[in-house]
């Protein structure tokens, strides 16, 4: 679930940090840059593990800061495909379940990856597994919000969220002829901006997967 990733980066240390120990300053700037951020195709960065090598520092003309190449290792949350994780159900909808592991929320379990057969209760907005018990007939096992759930990671998606060329503005509706159209309309909430940079897709359609309470022995 957590991996160590070896990285190399150029660290810029501004003059106001020169009173610090240089290693402390490097650690601080690496943590400011990476902690709690998703790096594309790498995963969710948690914290600096160690610094392996610090190269010479350079000062460029016109800038008082030092620039240093640093080789370091970072702790990254990146579960591998097929890994079993335990999370908590955050919300339910007709499309499936939304699961969180506390520090990472973008886990979805689509409705076709639930235990078979499952049904969605429109009134309570909850999914439940219609388990066919061998002697008692069918039993409804609900998936309550806030309940602990064990799932298998089946897919992961990275979305490049770095700002790109303004092609999104092309799809925007043409400015209305109202009084506000004289100024350039600024999109307040860009729908693509909300897209999660890293999403895990889970599945619970196997023996032993699903709510922890379903599989408690005894």
């Amino acid at each position: 679930m957590f991996v160590l990733v070896q990285m190399k980066d150029t660290v810029r240390i501004s003059p106001h940090l020169f009173h610090l120990d240089s290693m402390d300053a490097i650690r601080e700037s690496l943590n400011v840059k990476f902690a709690n951020k998703v790096v594309y195709n790498v995963g969710l960065c948690i914290a600096l593990w160690d610094i392996e090598k610090v190269e010479d520092s350079y000062i460029f003309p016109g800038d008082g800061a030092t620039h240093t190449n640093v080789h370091f290792r970072y702790v990254v949350f990146r579960p591998f495909v097929d890994e079993i994780l335990v999370g908590r159900i955050k919300s339910c909808s007709k499309d499936g379940l939304h699961v969180s592991v506390g520090f990472f929320d973008d886990i979805v379990i689509p409705s076709d990856s639930l235990q078979h057969p499952s049904k969605f209760n429109e009134q309570e907005q909850l999914w439940s597994w219609e388990y066919e018990a061998p002697d008692e007939g069918s039993v409804d096992l609900p998936m309550d919000i806030g309940g602990d759930i064990r799932f298998r990671v089946v897919d992961e998606t990275f979305v490049d969220t770095t700002p790109s060329c303004p092609d999104d503005t092309l799809s925007m509706p043409p400015p209305s002829s109202g009084p506000s159209s004289s100024t350039n309309p600024v999109p307040v909430s860009d729908p693509t901006a909300k897209k999660a940079p890293y999403t895990l897709v889970g599945s619970i359609s196997e023996m032993g997967l699903g709510m922890l309470s379903w599989w408690k022995p005894g």
Binding site: V3, Q6, M7, D9, V42
Partner: peptide, 9 residues
């Protein structure tokens, strides 16, 4: 930034 090894350990 350069990632040298994505799955070092």
């Amino acid at each position: 930034m350069e990632v040298k090894s994505k799955n070092h350990a």
